[in-house]
Amino acid sequence: MAKEYWRWKEYNWRDEKRDWRDGKVITGGVDVGSVSSQAVIMVDGEIYAFSNMRTGSNSPDSAVNAMNWALEETGISMDDFDFIVGTGYGRVNVPYADKAITEIACHARGGNYMYGPTVRTILDMGGQDCKAILCDERGKVTNFLMNDKCAAGTGRGMEVFADLLNVSIEEVGDLSLDVEEEPPPVSSTCVVFAKSEASQLLRDGWSRSRVLAAYCSAMAHRVFSLLERVGVQKDFAITGGIAKNTGVVSRLEKELGLTALQPRHDTQIAGALGAALFATTLVEKGKGRKKSQTAVTG
């Protein structure tokens, strides 16, 4: 089988400095996206463990797998949770969640925690969508816009290019910056047409770096116009998989004339993190599970 260049690595993490048994409130957030799924476990409102995996063909299984991987070696069992919130595209299919909240609200909440209360604009560039979210100092959404109809400006568009050029998705950004001068952006917005345009550029003798530079700047411009529609305010932050693509991020920052905040955690977990934060608030409001009645699913 041919190498699949769009594949990225899966991983999990846990805080080895703390013991969850010392905590009082244990909450979970799981974000089942169209491409990747994350689970976050919080102990007393601080991240304790998380996982990041590819979403399989079945949302409930992906939700279970992501949570099991985050739980791995922590000694926490499903019975220990006070509340779990599901979010993302597959949020209604999380078998063990107590509530489903949209990814818009969760990203704002997660972004507020991850970047601090000064963050006003959160751009989430996911695998199959792109969201521009404005929020207040409490992480409550004031304006949002989500584009999940068109592959342009999403991770999916980038995957198509990575595959076309036989470059692994993690290397796209750095490779696109390896050009002597910035080429004009790819002119087609539509991924299908941009792909034909790129094939033509390769035939014209363009290097892979140059083609990627042209595509990354087209994508940056696309995302810029999405942000313009909601009206960017400082501070600005980027979450989601594409936040790791330096080729798009640096070009977008240049176009915006703003520098994105540096995250305290992995940018892909923002949604799951927000979900876990909502769960924590709900427990604080006395809406948590009565632990003895909790059924374990999955």
Binding site: S57, Q128, K149, C150, A151, R156, G157, V160, C190, V191, V192
Partner: peptide
């Protein structure tokens, strides 16, 4: 899906 790129994946899931 409306987008050709996303519709392609949808066709594949329908096949599956």
């Amino acid at each position: 899906a409306q987008c050709a790129v996303f519709a392609e994946s949808e066709v594949i899931s329908l096949l599956h």
